[in-house]
């Protein structure tokens, strides 16, 4: 019953939003769904396996550039979607393995710093790999990327279903929604599997886990690669949606924001992570409105909204860890862990 109501709500939401608030707000919904996907991916790494990845956006970038380069006039390649998305996921996972192999056998915090570094390095490469051979087109980025297309259906154009007009942003909404629902089902299955149990055990006590026969390094690597492939997949969707990618989209701030979503919502709990992602992707829009409010009330913008946004994210991370480390909607085991 409740499920039915939720399904109807999700179905009509984009149309209602579009009618009431316009395309812009449906776009915000699209991005919210994309962030949910990213947060669910990072949740496998941070929430399930207890590994801190501070450069998650790097995998997002790898997926996005993979799509951009294989489906744009830049190299004049135009791969189909069914090949593009797996390619991005696979490439991102390979980067994850490359990065995780040397670090995951060591103390957990090395991974944090290495991923932090990787997140920056990947941007340096994207920015500079335009000379002498132009691979990434440097700071200008890659544009005119092929829109997402499922068989004969391009999601990059308006469709008509009976008398109903379906704008592009609504097409995208439904594609991303399917992606998110799929990711939720897969996350749940992983969590309650032999592998998910092994991750939880490693998070609880690595030495005891190893003594029970768990190959801890490989299992952590698996979690890391799984998370990376989620990131790569989302990156592909992002590129196809935007039609344009540039290094500027993949900053440390994005990584921090995704981490913030996972932490705020509740590490390890799917509902919490979804809530966190939706809240934090819609909140900045509210803050943007706050910028206008400052203008109206105080005559000038005292605090730059984007600045304020990051400041609040940073504060949220600190305060959540100090006051409510299990997040808004905690996972059962996490709550005990953090208050035990």
């Amino acid at each position: 019953m409740l499920l039915g109501a939720a399904a109807v709500l999700l179905l009509v939401l984009p149309f209602v939003t579009d009618a009431a608030l316009g395309h812009g707000w449906v776009r915000i919904l699209d991005f919210a769904l994309l962030y949910v996907l990213l947060a669910l991916g990072l949740n496998i790494v941070v929430g399930y396996a207890g590994l801190l990845d501070l450069g998650y956006v790097a995998f997002f970038a790898v997926g996005a550039y993979c799509y951009a380069l294989l489906a744009s006039p830049h190299f004049d390649l135009h791969w189909p979607l069914w090949a593009l998305l797996p390619a991005g996921a696979l490439l991102a996972a390979s980067f994850g393995v490359l990065l995780g192999t040397p670090t995951l056998g060591l103390r957990g915090d090395y991974l944090a710093i290495v991923t932090l570094g990787f997140g920056e390095i990947i941007r340096i490469f994207l920015n500079n790999l335009n000379t002498p051979v132009n691979i990434t087109n440097g700071p200008q980025g890659v544009s005119l990327i092929d829109p997402l297309r499922i068989g004969p259906w391009s999601l990059g154009q308006v469709h008509h279903l009976g008398g109903l007009e379906i704008p592009i942003v609504v097409n995208i909404y439904f594609l991303f929604l399917v992606g998110v629902l799929l990711a939720i089902v897969l996350s749940r299955r992983l969590e309650h599997s032999r592998i998910g149990r092994a991750w939880a055990a490693i998070r609880e006590d690595e030495v005891a886990a190893a003594s029970m026969g768990l190959h801890t390094r490989n299992l952590k690597l698996l979690a890391f690669a799984m998370g990376a492939s989620f990131g790569g997949l989302s990156g592909g969707l992002f590129a196809g949606f935007q039609g344009f990618v540039s290094p500027e989209s993949f900053t440390l701030q994005e990584s921090v924001m995704i981490l913030c979503m996972v932490v705020l919502g509740g590490m390890g709990n799917i509902a919490g992570v979804v809530l966190g992602a939706v809240l934090l992707s819609v909140l900045p829009e509210a803050l943007r409105a706050a910028g206008g409010l400052q203008q109206d009330l105080l005559g000038r913008v005292w605090v730059d909204p984007s600045n304020l946004r990051l400041l609040l994210f940073g504060l949220a991370l600190v305060l959540m860890m100090l006051l409510r480390p299990e997040g808004l909607l905690p996972a059962r085991a996490r709550q005990r862990e953090l208050h035990g």
Binding site: G50, L52, G108, L259, M320, L338
Partner: peptide, 12 residues
């Protein structure tokens, strides 16, 4: 607290 907590406050 578990190891992850101070790492997250640190980045925050």
């Amino acid at each position: 607290a578990p190891k992850l907590a101070p790492l997250i406050t640190a980045i925050g």
